[in-house]
Structures are given as C-alpha cells and as structure tokens.
C-alpha cells in the first residue's frame, strides 16, 4: 500500500459517500445517471468475485464490501425507493449502456493476463469501469447545470483513478516485475474521459458559478 493508492481509495470512498448522502438525506437523485450506477454495480460484482477465494487484507475485504454494498443500494434506491425514484430523470438518462457491456466482455475474452474465469471477469470489470461514466457524462450535458453534490460526486469518482495512475507509477519504480499494461491503459482511458468534465469543474471553482 502506498500513499497514492490510499488517497485513491479514500477519494473513491468519498465519492460513494457523497452520492449516498445526497440520495439518502435529501431523497433526490436529480442529475444522477441510473445507468452509470448499474454499470458500476456490475463492475464491482465482476471485479470482487475473488472476495471469497483470496484474502489480501482486512482493509481490502472491508472496502470491497463497502463498494459492493453501496453500488447495489444506490441502484436499489434509484429504482425502487418511491421518493428517490420520482426525482430520477428517466427521459434524459437514455445512453444505451448495455451496448457497452458486450464489447467489454468480448475484449476481455481477447485481451487478458490469464485465461481463467476469474481473470477474464476481472479484466471485463476494468474495461467496463473505463466507460461506465459515459451515461453520466451524457446526462450531465443534457441537464444544463447540476447541483454541487452531483458535481463533487463525479469529480471524486474521476479523481480516484487518476490517483491510482500515480500509484501504478510508484509501484512500477519500487516493485520489480510490477507491469500491468491492461490495468494501466484502462485506467488512463477512464481518467481521460473526465478531462472535459474536470475542465468545466475547475472553471466553476475559478468563476464561482454552478457547473454549466
């Protein structure tokens, strides 16, 4: 564990807590894409299958349970909780996210580190996570300006993988044989997809306006 990875995990945890805070306290998911949340639930479900077979550390297992529990409960809230579901913007959240799942699965079957069931699903979860934010970014452009909590959620979600890139650089220079091209490229693509959002997000900080 290094400071970059810890900062990345804490940023990721913060993004999930901000979203849960928004949905649980003000009972609103306005501006939040259910489709992105569904993709993230699949990402964690396919990435953490080894939670039962391989024990890394208490921290690792605990965080996996937190991410699994929060992603599925957010989907449940947005789908079935009466008050929250009412604030869900169904007409605008129309990105065909299921079209993202199949190509990621095919790609994982073609490009992976090891051809085993767990490894292919783990690789699939990496590819899927790289594009999971797309429905949310499309929704963002349709609903003109968003509230601060949603903006902070997306900012933290984009930032965590950026910190992971620093973690990979650090591990590359400090651990022999630490080379994971698939993870690095997927993480880089994922972070680059936020570039446009980061630009407007920082403009907001400088200009003090809402996220246009």
């Amino acid at each position: 564990m290094n400071i970059f990875r810890l900062a990345g995990d804490m940023t990721h945890l913060a993004s999930v807590l901000v979203l849960l805070l928004k949905i649980h306290t003000i009972k609103s998911c306005a501006g939040v894409s259910l489709r992105t949340q569904e993709l993230y639930a699949i990402v964690f479900a396919t990435r953490y299958l080894d939670i039962f077979t391989s024990f890394v550390s208490v921290y690792n297992t605990f965080m996996k349970l937190v991410f699994l529990g929060s992603s599925f409960s957010i989907v449940w809230y947005m789908r079935y909780h009466k008050a929250v579901h009412r604030t869900y913007d169904r007409e605008q959240d129309t990105f065909r996210h299921w079209f993202l799942v199949l190509p990621c699965l095919v790609l994982a079957l073609l490009i992976h580190e090891k051809f085993t069931f767990l490894e292919v699903l783990w690789t699939f979860s990496l590819y899927l996570e790289a594009v999971a934010i797309l429905p949310q970014l499309v929704l963002l452009q349709r609903t003109r300006n968003i509230d601060n909590l949603t903006g902070q959620y997306i900012f933290l979600l984009g930032g965590y993988r950026g910190l992971y890139i620093l973690n990979w650089i650090y591990r590359y220079f400090t651990e022999p044989h630490f080379v994971h091209w698939i993870t690095w490229i997927a993480g880089l693509v994922q972070t680059l997809l936020y570039a446009d959002f980061f630009y407007y997000y920082f403009l907001r900080f400088i200009g003090g306006r809402g996220v246009e």
């Binding site: 995990d9 890394v56 992971y164 973690n167």
Partner: peptide
C-alpha cells in the same frame, strides 16, 4: 504481499 496472480488493488 498477496499470492502471485491475485489482485491486491481494489
């Protein structure tokens, strides 16, 4: 660290 091949990152 973790057994070879397992992923130790989240």
């Amino acid at each position: 660290d973790t057994p070879k091949g397992f992923h130790d990152e989240l």
